[in-house]
Simulated scan of single mutants.
Amino acid sequence: LRAELAAVDVTCSRFRPDSELTRVNLAAGTTVTVGERFAEALEAALRSAELTGGAVDPTVGRAVIALGYDRTFASLRPDDVRPLPVFRPAPGWRSIVWNARTRRLRLPADTCLDLGSSAKALAADRAASRAAAAAGCGVVVNLGGDLAVAGTPPDGGWRIAVADDHARPEPSRCPTVAVTTGALATSGVRVRTWRRAGRTVHHIVDPLTGEPAAPVWHTATVAAATCVDANAAGTAAIVLGHAAEDWLRRTGLPARLVAPDGRVVRLGGWPPEARAPGATLAGGAR
């Protein structure tokens, strides 16, 4: 697990001057060759963009930075008095020139990739698989709302408590689901928020506008075969807003949406609310 986290950090962190992502972003407008790990993370991001019809797009980097998320979240100014930026649509994932065989990449000039959410989900998938192989037993890996399982689960599956706000969780009140295979991911706009010019903003950007997605849903939790796909669907639900219910129904994925007023929408066979003590807490972290 430590090896996977170290690898994804040095490869995909926007906040490290020595990361490969920083090198790629600085080279926007020219063609570069990337490493195998970066290529895998980019493929995951492009898959997320394709599966969501562009609702999740790795080219939102400049928009996220313009909002003030230009450093680790713990270092953000909680009340940034600078004026709001001029919002512009993201360049779009289809503008990326990528050759998977040669690992040659060209970003449009003035484009900044943000691989954050998909890379973290990929790290959860990879870490769960590697840990299960190393330990010879079932494992569950939870990376701040991105949860993947591998190996043989305990009887009845892994009990996962889904929190709408991981910063102030109440485990006894969190609905609990059992996960036996695959992954579970939660996206939300309740935790990673800050003030900018008197307006509350968050980190999930709508690629069509360059603005923070409208807070139609506080959290979206989705189950899928991989954490990369669950993460993509959950983030897309936040971006899609009122259109998320129909879109998720078409995917057939189990999902739980929570509106700002506390209304809960369950889709795709998501089970009725149940609570159980001693469950692993997941959700609301991204």
Results as ranks from 00 to 15, higher is better:
105 L>G: 06
222 V>H: 06
229 D>F: 00
114 D>R: 04
88 R>Y: 01
137 C>S: 10
108 P>F: 07
160 I>Y: 00
14 R>A: 11
248 L>M: 06
18 D>L: 05
187 S>A: 15
53 G>H: 04
250 R>P: 07
26 L>A: 13
278 G>A: 05
166 H>N: 03
55 A>C: 08
196 R>C: 13
215 P>F: 06
73 F>A: 15
114 D>P: 15
159 R>Y: 01
91 P>T: 10
60 V>H: 00
277 P>C: 13
256 R>P: 07
150 A>H: 07
213 A>D: 08
27 A>H: 01
126 R>Q: 03
55 A>R: 10
153 P>M: 05
260 P>C: 07
64 V>P: 00
166 H>S: 12
1 L>H: 05
268 G>A: 06
268 G>C: 04
60 V>E: 06
74 A>G: 13
124 A>M: 07
93 W>L: 03
176 T>Y: 00
207 P>S: 15
280 T>D: 02
252 G>H: 10
106 R>P: 00
53 G>M: 02
282 A>I: 09
190 R>G: 14
93 W>K: 00
46 L>F: 03
200 T>Y: 03
125 D>L: 11
63 A>D: 03
115 L>D: 10
154 P>M: 06
48 S>T: 05
179 V>I: 15
112 C>W: 05
9 D>K: 01
274 A>S: 14
265 V>H: 03
251 T>W: 02
96 I>S: 02
13 S>L: 11
59 T>A: 08
239 V>N: 13
247 W>F: 02
28 A>H: 05
224 A>G: 09
171 P>F: 02
73 F>K: 14
127 A>S: 14
262 G>K: 08
263 R>Q: 11
280 T>P: 00
43 E>S: 10
267 L>C: 07
36 E>K: 02
153 P>A: 09
10 V>H: 11
39 A>G: 15
55 A>M: 06
244 A>G: 15
77 R>Y: 00
279 A>C: 09
28 A>P: 02
37 R>E: 10
23 R>P: 04
280 T>W: 01
48 S>I: 00
116 G>T: 10
97 V>K: 05
108 P>D: 08
23 R>T: 09
115 L>N: 14
227 C>G: 09
184 L>V: 15
78 P>I: 09
44 A>G: 09
49 A>N: 12
111 T>G: 08
205 V>Y: 03
59 T>I: 13
126 R>S: 15
198 G>D: 12
73 F>M: 12
226 T>L: 11
222 V>S: 09
132 A>Y: 01
131 A>R: 04
36 E>H: 04
179 V>S: 13
247 W>A: 10
182 G>R: 04
218 H>G: 15
167 A>T: 11
264 V>Q: 03
223 A>C: 08
1 L>G: 14
242 H>G: 09
67 L>M: 06
103 R>E: 11
250 R>N: 11
106 R>E: 09
69 Y>L: 13
231 N>R: 05
261 D>E: 11
